[in-house]
Amino acid sequence: MLHGLAAATTALVLTATLAALLRALMLRFGRAGDATPHLGGVAVALATLGVACAGPVLGVAELGPGVAPLLAASGGIALVGLVGDVRPLGVRVRLVAQAAAAIAVVTLAGLTPGAGALAVLWIVFVTNAFQFLDHCDGVMGAVAAVTALGLAVCAIAGGHPGNGLLLSVLAAALTGFLLHNWHPARIHLGHCGALFTGFLLASSAVTVHAGEPGGRTTAELFALTVLVLTDTLLVLLSRRRAGRPALRGGGDHIAHRLRALGLTTQGSAVVLGLASLACTLIALQIHDGRLAPVAAVPLALVVPVAVVLFLRVPVYGPASRRRPPRARTPSGPAPHTASVDLAGGRG
């Protein structure tokens, strides 16, 4: 317990410090006109991996079987994302890298071929769903931190203390990053941090739930990720209806629509964070057996209703069908409204 608290505290402080240092370096040596750097994910990845590996190296904690390969695969995805932040990477390259890393994780988890194939597809989808979510100040960090904490509790309760420690460290690192990413954001996650976080969460979920009853696991994982799945579905349907490229960034996510309804940027992040917390609590109740897997059915019914309602909120300007508007608050710098989508575009 004490080691877990020390590790989490270290990850929080280290991420906040590294993010501030990276911001200063990018403002000094980065591209002209890039007022808000987008390599904050490097701080999250380095702090998470470094603190998680420090326990075994220092002899104060063991990560347990299966955690080291998970760290290696997540680190590889972070490197792919970092390359994408520095220079554009094609969709195919990133998807192949994610699939290869997911196959490695699933193989070591000992899943059957059928379940393993579904798990690989799910990991890749959730990885990119969390990347889609990195579009507005504070949203990605808040939702991912809550999800990581929920998965950490599931891991510890299921007898996976190493995974629980890793997820707790990730949650703390994201919290440290939020100190710089809360509106008005001074640094963004970028591809590196968004892909790393999404992949680590999805892969950890598969690892922790390997061998558990299929119905309960499906319901639990759906509840944990229902918010990011809803946001992704909303964006893809909205862009298809508007005749816009599906994989280009834009101001058409749930957070942008909440702001169009009158919420502030901070308020949108808080609402989505609380929604993620509510879904996470349901997932924990299912994991503990206090709720039957059928409890996830109402969430499944909420998804299409939410998508239909949010589709009615206008977010595309009449002047252009190709480039969504960059909303600004009445005062202060513009919030982060550009999605970091599969194609690497920033709308």
Rank of each mutant, 00 (worst) to 15 (best):
A68H: 07
L70Y: 07
L71V: 02
A73E: 06
S74V: 00
A78E: 04
V80Y: 04
L82T: 01
G84Q: 05
G84I: 03
D85C: 04
R87P: 09
R87I: 06
P88R: 08
P88W: 10
G90R: 13
G90E: 12
V91S: 13
V91M: 14
R92V: 15
R92W: 14
L95M: 14
V96D: 04
V96Q: 00
V96P: 01
A99S: 15
A100G: 13
A100K: 03
A102C: 08
A102G: 10
I103D: 04
I103Q: 05
I103E: 07
V105K: 04
V106C: 05
T107F: 09
L108N: 03
A109E: 11
A109F: 06
A109K: 01
A109C: 11
G110P: 11
G110F: 13
T112C: 02
G114K: 02
G114Q: 07
G114W: 14
G114N: 06
A115Y: 05
A115S: 11
A119N: 09
A119P: 03
V120F: 01
L121H: 00
W122I: 04
I123H: 08
I123P: 08
V124C: 15
F125W: 15
V126H: 03
V126G: 09
T127A: 12
N128P: 03
N128I: 09
N128A: 10
A129H: 01
A129R: 04
F132P: 00
L133Q: 08
D134P: 12
D134M: 11
H135T: 11
C136V: 10
C136H: 07
D137H: 02
D137F: 03
G138E: 08
V139E: 07
M140E: 04
G141A: 13
G141I: 11
A142D: 02
A142F: 12
A144K: 01
A144T: 12
A144N: 02
A145S: 15
V146W: 07
T147H: 02
T147C: 15
A148M: 12
A148Q: 07
L149I: 11
L149T: 09
L149K: 02
G150Q: 06
G150C: 14
L151I: 14
L151V: 12
